[in-house]
Simulated scan of single mutants.
Amino acid sequence: MEDTDKAMILPKVASPHLNIINPAPGMMVYDTTAKQLAVSMAKCGASGSRSN
């Protein structure tokens, strides 16, 4: 994102790896349990988490 006056708001989900059964590849949510970004990385539904 290049604009300084815009933001991306992600859905908040507790433990998305348990609560999202079939995530779309590339889907991003904020994991409220782990307090970090969770990104779906594989076509088969596997997901990963990333924190700053």
Score class of each variant (00 low, 15 high):
51 S>C: 05
40 S>L: 02
44 C>Y: 08
3 D>H: 15
16 P>Q: 01
31 D>C: 14
3 D>E: 14
50 R>S: 08
43 K>T: 07
44 C>A: 13
2 E>K: 09
34 A>M: 12
51 S>F: 06
22 N>G: 01
32 T>Q: 05
26 G>T: 09
42 A>Y: 09
8 M>F: 14
45 G>Q: 01
21 I>Q: 09
38 A>Y: 08
19 N>C: 01
37 L>Q: 07
31 D>G: 00
13 V>G: 02
43 K>D: 14
41 M>Y: 14
24 A>L: 13
30 Y>R: 02
18 L>S: 12
8 M>D: 07
38 A>M: 15
45 G>T: 05
38 A>H: 10
46 A>M: 02
9 I>S: 10
46 A>S: 11
46 A>L: 04
6 K>W: 07
18 L>A: 11
45 G>D: 03
36 Q>H: 07
3 D>A: 15
4 T>N: 10
38 A>V: 10
44 C>I: 12
30 Y>T: 02
18 L>C: 03
37 L>F: 07
47 S>G: 06
26 G>I: 12
2 E>L: 15
30 Y>F: 15
9 I>P: 00
29 V>T: 14
25 P>W: 02
20 I>H: 06
42 A>R: 11
18 L>R: 13
16 P>E: 01
47 S>D: 01
39 V>K: 10
49 S>V: 01
17 H>N: 02
49 S>L: 01
27 M>T: 06
13 V>D: 02
39 V>Q: 10
7 A>K: 11
11 P>V: 04
9 I>Y: 05
11 P>K: 09
10 L>T: 03
48 G>Q: 06
8 M>P: 01
14 A>P: 03
48 G>C: 05
14 A>H: 07
12 K>P: 03
22 N>I: 06
26 G>R: 11
8 M>H: 09
24 A>E: 14
33 T>Y: 06
43 K>N: 13
15 S>K: 13
17 H>I: 02
48 G>D: 06
13 V>W: 01
20 I>N: 04
11 P>Y: 04
33 T>N: 14
14 A>S: 13
14 A>I: 05
29 V>L: 05
36 Q>C: 15
46 A>V: 00
23 P>Y: 02
1 M>Q: 13
39 V>G: 05
25 P>G: 00
24 A>D: 09
47 S>F: 03
15 S>H: 04
28 M>K: 10
19 N>W: 01
37 L>C: 10
32 T>D: 06
42 A>S: 15
23 P>H: 04
3 D>M: 12
41 M>W: 13
